[in-house]
Structure formats: structure tokens, C-alpha cells
């Protein structure tokens, strides 16, 4: 069995004391992309991205013959970050512009939602990054193809 995650050593005691109620916690402050970027410029600011692993994925997709796009799913920014020296606060970046999906081909609503996710940062012209996702088929073609291919598995032993 994998060892218990780090938080296991603390949760029991927190539950024994009675955890703080949600309405007692600091209210999440919404920031625009520019405000977020300004906070990030503070050298004492440490960014903790609380999103799931999959939130970093970049997917290339074809909307129509001859039209393909690649969408980064994160600017080098997170959903929440925490100052080391000022107690524990959390912020959430808000989008400055939103696109509503219009009726169209199946899947367009999903794409529009995804665009919204990175919209605020991207619309401001700030850079974005992502981790390229491969489909199982693409991956198979890579390892079975004629080109030399070296697979480096960087997962932890527990995975």
C-alpha cells in the first residue's frame, strides 16, 4: 500500500478539535488578470495551484477542415495562491470577459467554456503554457513508429 498522504497526520486532530466552519473562513477575493499579475510580482508571494492535474492539459483540436487550434489551459497562473508572510488567504482569478456558447456544432459549448477558463489572462495578452496531452492512438503511433522514441516515465513509485 502507498504510505498515507501527508495530510492524514493532521486531519484527525483537526476533526477532534472541531474544524472551523466554512462561514468563519476568509472570503475568497476575486481578482482581475492584471490584479493577479501584480500580486504575483511580489517576490514574497508563493503561488499554490489547487486545480487538478488535468487542468494543465493542452489539447489540439480541429474545428473544421483546415482550421485547427491548440488551447493552453493555464496561463502560468493558478486558481489560488497564498502569501507566506501574511497569514493564509486565497484568491480566485475572475474572467474579465466571457463568451457564451452559441448554438452550433456539438462540442462548441464545451470549447466556449474552455476558452472562458483562460480568457481573462489571455485576453490581457499575457503568455500561456500547457502540458501537451496525447491520445492513446497518438501515443501508440509514436512508440510504434519508425522514429527513435524514448519513453521516460516520471511518475512516482506509488503511481
Amino acid at each position: 500500500m502507498p504510505p498515507a498522504p501527508d495530510h492524514f497526520s493532521r486531519c484527525s486532530d483537526i476533526n477532534r478539535r472541531g474544524p472551523a466552519r466554512l462561514d468563519e473562513l476568509p472570503v475568497v477575493e476575486e481578482l482581475s488578470a492584471s490584479q493577479f499579475r501584480e500580486r504575483m510580482s511580489d517576490p514574497e508571494m508563493v503561488v499554490l495551484d489547487t486545480r487538478s492535474y488535468h487542468a494543465y492539459a493542452t489539447v489540439s483540436t480541429s474545428l473544421a477542415p483546415g482550421i485547427s487550434i491548440s488551447m493552453a489551459t493555464f496561463p502560468p497562473l493558478p486558481a489560488g495562491f497564498c502569501p507566506l508572510t501574511k497569514g493564509c488567504c486565497r484568491w480566485r482569478m475572475t474572467t474579465t470577459r466571457r463568451w457564451k456558447p452559441s448554438p452550433g456544432p456539438a462540442g462548441l459549448g464545451w470549447i466556449a467554456l474552455w476558452v472562458t477558463w483562460t480568457a481573462a489572462w489571455a485576453v490581457e495578452g499575457y503568455g500561456t503554457r500547457g502540458v501537451q496531452l496525447l491520445s492513446a492512438r497518438d501515443f501508440h503511433e509514436m512508440i510504434a513508429g519508425a522514429d527513435d522514441f524514448v519513453l521516460v516515465d516520471v511518475r512516482a513509485p506509488q503511481e
Binding site: S9, S12, I14, L22
Partner: peptide
């Protein structure tokens, strides 16, 4: 039991 894997919501639910 006092769950080790998550923070319980018993205080919120009681309130």
C-alpha cells in the same frame, strides 16, 4: 471516527 483523510463538516452541519 475522526477521519484522517478529510476535514469533516460536522460543525457546519450542526450549526
Amino acid at each position: 471516527h475522526l477521519h484522517a483523510d478529510f476535514i469533516s463538516g460536522h460543525m457546519d452541519l450542526a450549526q
